[in-house]
Nucleic acid binder design. Structure first.
Lengths: 229, 229, 229, 229
DNA sequence: AATGAATGAGCTTTCATTCAT
DNA sequence: TATGAATGAAAGCTCATTCAT
């Protein structure tokens, strides 16, 4: 991990360590974890294709090529499966996030740009994944558990971005903006771009999206980013 | 309507005029429309409280203080009710939007700021309303009808904002940004702020959100907006 | 009426005089009867098209171009409507039957042949009418009222046919058969032909059907009917 | 099988071999088939007692002593259950039919008489079974699937009877009738007798019915059947 | 006499969950 | 560990009937 991950580590400590599952050591554990992951993957496919409300336990089992009872065997309830799916989704994102941070090199400006770019990468912004995120966000209000997971996930993201902005602001001696406001603007832009991509996939233009982000960076942090209209 | 509504009118023409229903004049029409509206309102309340997937036709009827069969009597299917609800939600937003545009006065910069402010107004950004938007966005991928309505709605918003940005850019002779990129950045920020508000209501700070938006405007259009950190 | 109608009269007396409705004399009576008949006709169309089980009161009202509540206003219940429809169906048949008998002339053999021919007439044996008969027969077992009406109707038919056969047998001095058996054979054949027409409309051949009946008459009453293979 | 079954075989080939289901061999198959049959039996009982239109899926499940969901588990829809019930009814009849043909011995006249007798046998002509046949016939017009099954069933019956008549006619050198007409007359008489039995069970007299049929045979095929008035 | 909005019971169907194998 | 038959609660929808207008 690079130096910037310090923020990541802090954020990690802030967040409830929800992923620390009780892993019984032993022969069967691996197989058990594999089955769970297989089911979570099947769930994601189903949600992306049919939507969260239309995804039944039977669909998931069929998608995974297994039998009816399998989900309750491994997750005890549909609720657990969905929660686990959301957690996995968030973890996957975080892995990408941390990897991106690692690769970006030591300069905060590069790291920030790399993170913004990541959110627009075709792999991540593919509509199926977006659909899953929005499916869960759609239930956030009525499902405290989902809200909590998303909240942790967001806080982690925000804290890293805010840290990077703080470094850049300090480095550039900018007085036109606070780290918090800059981070808020950037993260919100990212999320908003996802919505555009979900709703108007045909009109969605990665270049315009990218120039929207870069125009912000170039105008707010002119010493660090060049205007490239 | 002020001068800025020209964009609104253009956008209006672009959008399918879905609301032009054939209303037979007569005694019962009013009552019938009122019932439909009553049911749509009840639906919104239910979705906000329990989520879209957990809202049954029975819940809606109970919320409205009417009988089981009432929804199918007036909407023929749950699907129609939900579609109508989304449409009503979008129409309500548009009314607010147009009214805001009207009140803002003749200067594009004022109009743009007023629109941004509107999205943060407690009344509009109240979590219940947000929850409904996200509930529908969560189904957009698997429900083409929802997608279409949201798409039209977004296009209207975008076209107006882009028009305002174009006026401002021309007026200020800005070369650092295109109208499209500025509009994309602003609309995405708005949507992203909604997500923050939905997911982290306790941490959501209207002032930070507002300064995020204003910092963008002040930096991108410095001749039109003052820095107010 | 011709002489053969004596049997008709006897049968008539045997049958419960179910059709004697309480007709209040007065201005509105005619209009009221007309509405009832209009609804009965609409019912027949619906049953022919969609089947008895799939015909709702709403369908009937729509077919008649009237409003929802009209059936209950004029018949008090769906049950009454259906019963009245069956009665009307039977009455229509009887009118045809009596008219045929009237036209057939004084000789029993001619009358019998004319009745048999009537059952095969395109107008009567049109599949829509058959469908209605079978729709009611299908419910006979579980609906005593239907059974009663059909029973009366059949008894009338049988008694006339049996009477004609008796005359023919006496006239020809036949010893090979009883009137009851001959009548049973003929009426059953008629009904059975209807079933063929209903089930295999494309293969149903009126000529074969007619020759089946005539072969019976020619062989059983050789002095009265000629073989016409 | 006796020699007469040749016709049965031909007819069998003509008919769509709908019963050849893909039965996966294995443990559960037997049990699954048994459940389906149990449900079909329960359906027959319900239809006989309450009529087709009044038979709900819940009634069938209760009759079978099982739970609500069982029918949709094994048949996927009520429609499938009813279709399967009709098919089973037709198959049962065919089994009886073939068995009767087998037992009747080599002479066509005997076989024909045995078939006619079979239709009047108390076991077969019991009103409950008749009610089921008529229940389905009542829906034939509006349900193409029912019509098709009944059509196949009838064709089989007809082809066998017509074959027997052809043999008898050739053997006796009869010129008074064609095989087709004779077969039509006989099958129609059988069906018509069922209707009598359904509608006027108290007046229905097996002896009269039988003498109606025999009178036909004796008069049309005098060399093969004796007059027994 | 006629309408059509409203009701609520009852239907078919779906589906999370249980459990014997 | 895995299966899939079975359950039963709950869902959406239909419809005969009622009733204010």
């Amino acid at each position: 991990m690079s130096i910037h991950s310090d923020y990541a580590i802090i954020a990690l400590l802030m967040a409830t360590v929800a992923t620390a599952k009780t892993r019984r050591p032993g022969r069967r554990t691996a197989s058990r974890e594999a089955r769970r992951r297989q089911l979570v993957d099947a769930t994601m496919k189903c949600i992306a294709r049919k939507g969260l409300g239309q995804t039944s336990i039977g669909d998931v089992a069929r998608e995974a090529g297994l039998s009816q009872g399998i989900v309750n065997l491994h997750f005890e309830s549909k609720d657990n499966l969905l929660t686990e799916t959301l957690r996995t989704l968030a973890n996957e994102y975080r892995e990408q996030f941390d990897k991106t941070l690692d690769k970006a090199g030591p300069r905060p400006a590069d790291a920030l740009q790399a993170l913004m770019a990541m959110d627009l990468k075709p792999k991540l912004i593919d509509r199926r994944k977006l659909a899953i995120w929005f499916a869960f966000w759609g239930e956030v209000k009525s499902r405290p558990t989902y809200r909590k997971i998303c909240d942790e996930h967001d806080r982690y993201y925000d804290s890293v971005v805010e840290g990077l902005c703080a470094e850049i602001i300090e480095d550039g001696g900018y007085t036109n903006i606070t780290p918090a406001a800059a981070a808020e603007a950037l993260t919100c832009m990212s999320n908003g771009l996802w919505l555009s991509c979900l709703i108007s996939p045909k009109d969605f233009d990665r270049d315009v999206a990218w120039s929207a982000i870069m125009s912000y960076l170039a105008n707010v942090f002119p010493k660090h980013y060049e205007t490239t209209t």
